[in-house]
Amino acid sequence: MPVFYDNRELVTPGDLLAEGNYAAGKNTYKVGNRIYASQLGLMEYDKREVRVVALNAFYTPSVGDLVIGKIVEVNVNGWTVDINAPYLATLKASDVIERFRPQRDDLLSVLDIGDLITAKIVSYDRSRPPTLTIREPGLGKITYGQVVKITPTKIPRVIGRKGSMISVLKRETGCKIVVGQNGLILVQGRNPEDERLVVMAIHKIEREAHTSGLTDRVTEMIRKGRVARNESGVAGKANR
């Protein structure tokens, strides 16, 4: 059962990854007993499975995911939401308003076109568009902060192993960070400077996601950024 590439080696679509009794994991496919890559990404394998961590991909909805979306349409009994996926999602009015009455309730006053929301996906299959809910603590309309867009495959890197990366970002800047599985990240800080620092760090993570020692470099970058800011006196006193 030979494997033709090393762990974390860069592979391209069509590369023959392994032959034999392996399971075809993410971003791979099987023909007979040969496993090929279907994406540009980093090869990973263990005794059982061969998979590829894609470097660039679009978001495929999955039930239970937390996503950040934008209202693009207001209908009679709900909203259409762009969740950065191949399909537009729907949010039912009955989910947002208790005892919804189509004749009386004004949906525009609840959520208008262009509003950003955090939501969870409650259903999705091949035959109909995904549906969302905001009926959970912490979900709903976003009222302040900044939203950054990155490629969805790099979301795990922003979170880090057991949340190591994200806790660094939170601890070093004091910002609240909500990570949508669809590649959108909400950053809410006490002032725009803190938020800007996090946004810069996230872009750095996206660009260098396939390299090692990233958490240390990001920590260093944020600390330098804060020092530079305090010296120039933009923030005045430290926000702690």
Partner: peptide, 11 residues
């Protein structure tokens, strides 16, 4: 297509 992250059998 590959750059867009679209799953492909081969280039």
């Amino acid at each position: 297509l590959a750059d867009a992250g679209i799953p492909m059998r081969d280039l």
